[in-house]
Design a binder for these strands. Sequence first.
DNA 1: TAACCCATCTTTTTT
DNA 2: AGATGGGTTA
Length: 783
Amino acid sequence: MTASSDITAPGPRPGGIAARALGAKPIPDYVARLNPEQRLAVETTDGPVLVLAGAGTGKTRVLTTRIAHLLATGKAHPSQILAVTFTNKAAREMRHRIGDLIGPSVEGMNWLGTFHSIGVKILRRHAELVGLKSSFTILDTDDQIRLMKQVIQAEGIDEKRWPAKQLAALIDGWKNRGLVPKDVPPGDGGSFANGKAVKLYIAYQERLKVLNACDFGDLLLENLRLFREHPDVLKEYHQRFHYMLVDEYQDTNVAQYLWLRLLAQGRRNICCVGDDDQSIYGWRGAEVDNILRFEKDFPGAVVIRLERNYRSTSHILGAASHLIAHNQGRLGKTLFTEANDPDSVKVQVSSSWDSEEEARAIGEKIEDLQRQGHRLNDMAILVRASFQMRSFEDRFITLGLNYRVIGGPRFYERQEIRDALAYFRVVAQPADDLAFERIVNTPRRGIGDTSIKLLYDYGRSRGIPITQAAEELVQTEEVKAKTRTALRDLMASFERWRGKLGTIKHTELAEIILDESGYTEMWQQDRSADAPGRLENLKELIRSMDEFESMEGFLEHIALVMDKDNAENQDAVSIMTLHSAKGLEFETVFLPGWEEGLFPHQRALDESGRAGLEEERRLAYVGITRAKKRASIWFASNRRIHGLWQSNVPSRFLDELPEKHVDVVEQTSNYGGYNVGGVGNYGASRFDRADPFQNTYSTPGWQRAQANRAAGAKPAAKSNTRLIEGELIAKSTGSKSDYAIGERVFHQKFGYGHIEDIEGNKLTVAFEKAGTKKVVDSFVSKN
DNA sequence: TAACCCATCTTTTTT
DNA sequence: AGATGGGTTA
């Protein structure tokens, strides 16, 4: 057992270190503004500290104040603090807020950034130690997949049967877990390419080295290698970093964790801030376990819980806390608020007939609020999956309601931007094969697949990049005259542009490249609707280059910072996924689509069982806790998924909300909701006859939850996943179906069909006309 | 080489 | 439904 202190509601203990420290000098006002727990988190500067910061408890404030405190007390210089975040946005915001506290000296914080940007910085300094040149290129996902495709084909494997995307997922997974090829456990690649996955991983890494390139995963992996194989280098960083801080610690994957641990071995002054209840990125390698094992890895760690919530009303907090209490794998925090909120409203739960009505009803609510003087900027619609956004967009367009979609394809991922960047890359980094391949025939120059293959063969046989192969081949007779001319012209152009690199302004050069290559013209000729937008984006790209010193500086930046501020100042409702809502807050939050299968998402359940369910529940928790004043949850009885209508069962998460903090809104519209008997054209169903939410509160699941809650007990722990899944099905279905496999049934909408499978009250029916669908038994009748 | 047709897939997203 | 990608055809 390690000596760790778990401090739940501390104040400076009389005579304690903090109290003495405080007594010694006047309390700086930035510290005085903190509550006791926050203050402890700020003032416990030395040794390992884990801050468990619930939603809305001032996490960022603690981090920024802690840094300010380290600087103000002279414990460290700005350049001696390592502060890591996950996103550029978070890093920017942190820099900004520290700047507010300490002024311009924040500029000296050279080591505040994302895991990746700091990883690159370190790697560039020591690149040759891991077999790279310091000018290495960083490949994005797209390049990565194209390269893997080549590797798969080079191995003579059928790329159709074993898609590069799948291999990429596999390799990414390994890299997330910090595994180089030789560390991959045998059999871990599954049946991919008949067990050749690791071989492909090796081949891929070799190709990367030849190209002098790294993918995102390598940035950390190569750091690990560097630190392990060169203790002197690691030691240098131990000396450099006096204090380390980590934001969103619950999102770290194993590689990031190992990286942190290596660095923290030096001075052991590491402070991680996170919330296990907000871990929603398990599917991309985040390990909540990193939080759970912190005390083991750092004996003597101080654990501080921030549970005082400053964001939400007591009803919202009550609803969210009760929901998340259904999770077993958590450290457990109880959020509370001291806000005196007499006008606090309960969380509303409403239903609708289908997604269109859902959008219509939410649109009305938004307009109501707007009429009452609320700003659209203070409202958000948070969806589980992005396809849900469409019905809202459609509706808001007809209403003329301003909205903004957050997320979606990012600026630097657009085709025209990537093409333009590829041109710049070939100019700046002549051996960038992937970039060259991308644009060699864009616009069309008559250099087709055959010619490119020829370049590859030539290049591979001689071990030279294809750009160089192109240079050499145009001197020979091996290429058809027409192609040869085209290629020679292109190579000459690149040579010409390269010559201008550094002699004229890089933005000007960029324009010249796009014009002379015919790329701009290609879009000008394009008659499709989005061509003008693409030209606009290209202009925007060049405008944004202006902020950089040089072409190389710009390319370095965009490889890592694939986001762009779209600071729209217009008043608009935000529409985004629950994932991208993490860290944000709004007065009013709408949470549509709380239906089994969508939320929790069926795939999360299928692929990850209980862990998947718990992650979905955390997502629900994140959703509710985004709301400051009003949260309203919606459920649609019918939804069109992949083009076909599906009837839905309300999400089990609805069952898990506490009645005390929830208002079930009776559907009174005449569009045909739940309890409008017989209006819907789906014919009789149990949904038509009774208010499901009245039923909801008497389901076994709900009662069990209430009982557990009352007893103060966590739901009984189950170690057997199968059993738990069985329980979940029972929970979601309620009663057993009295249909039998093979039985012929009739559905109001889909017609006749035969039952293929039964799962609780969900039937898989092969309809004669409509195909095979999953339906709830109450929607069909015996024939 | 470009147009066209068919099969396939469809959660969440950062770097 | 709708986008995407690959293979086939003119």
